[in-house]
Design a protein around this nucleic acid. Structure first.
Lengths: 164, 164
DNA sequence: TGGTATCACTTGACATTTCAAGCAATAGGG
DNA sequence: CCCTATTGCTTGAAATGTCAAGTGATACCA
């Protein structure tokens, strides 16, 4: 197969293809594995855990829905549905923002905080087991650069990390 | 926060946390971006495309459902639903295996093959733009090792790649 | 052979996510 | 001020994925 031009061949090389297949595997299997552990140990999906973990790191265990959307990489719609379910379980509370009543703040309740605290060590251990076991300390920084590079292109508007 | 022991601290270091956040972003945003391009250009989800792409690489455009499950990292159940939808669109056909009638073979039709052929260059270009732009040639092999290392732990039974 | 176990899916019910409106609050002209 | 546009979120319906149970075919053992 001839290449269209020098910089962007139409197909992937053998090495690129291997990388792409491996990435595919990780992209689909890793979230499932994280879901499984959190479901088993705490009855939460990975996304529900992430939702609450992000809140737990905030000053007042509070974030505006759209900030939460940015740092969990989710749509506002998805977030809204999840918030409703977590609210029903008593883990989260929603209240209109005092200064701009369009905005909704999600607040982690005591119960929700307790759930995160109980689950966090197990979750971190699982992340370590599944991910960091396979990454030598030297490889952490370069790999971070690669992933951030991908994010910059996939989502040029920029990924927000809430201040801790 | 004190560490529990030398080899497995309870929390992630600052660098590890950055990597983990970046990986989270890629894990959720990259599939969405790939979906978006394939949906736009061909009316297919990424998974549907993958399903058909794997078939298109086979000798007789045919794979047993469970082989397809292995190489797309999907459950048999999910595969079955997708096969039904693709069958309804005329892209795929299913037939019982002649020698073991428990097994089902999925076969890519002419229409399905044409769809893959039309879409493949666009998809590869998108994968290049989103992923390989961010990876220097030197980094391809090490990164592959890391991802394969993760897969070995996430799914010890081993990821199968169908012979081409 | 006959009976049970296992395999390879398929199916239907349920949960979740996405998509397209919809709604209330605020911002920004004229 | 008022009128429209925009923002920030919510909602309900449709698409999609997951889970548990079911089905038919084959393997295995007595």
């Amino acid at each position: 197969m001839a290449e269209a031009n020098g910089s962007a061949p139409e197909w992937l090389s053998e090495e690129e293809r291997s990388l792409w297949l491996a990435m595919n595997g990780v992209l689909t299997r890793l979230p499932q594995a994280l879901d499984a552990q959190l479901e088993r140990d705490g009855g939460l999906s990975y996304f529900e855990y992430l939702f609450m973990a992000m809140l737990s790191e905030q000053e007042h265990r509070t974030l505006q829905m759209s900030e939460l959307a940015a740092c969990t990489n989710a749509s506002l719609s998805r977030l809204s549905h999840v918030a409703r379910r977590l609210e029903a379980r008593g883990y989260v509370r929603r209240e209109a923002d005092a200064t701009d009543r369009r905005c909704t703040n999600a607040v982690l309740t005591e119960d929700g905080f307790a759930a995160v605290v109980a689950l966090a060590p197990l979750h971190v251990a699982e992340v370590r087991r599944l991910v960091f076991e396979a990454i030598s300390p030297d490889a952490v920084l370069p790999l971070t650069r690669v992933l951030e590079g991908i994010m910059d292109i996939v989502d040029p508007s920029g990924h927000v990390e809430p201040g801790r």
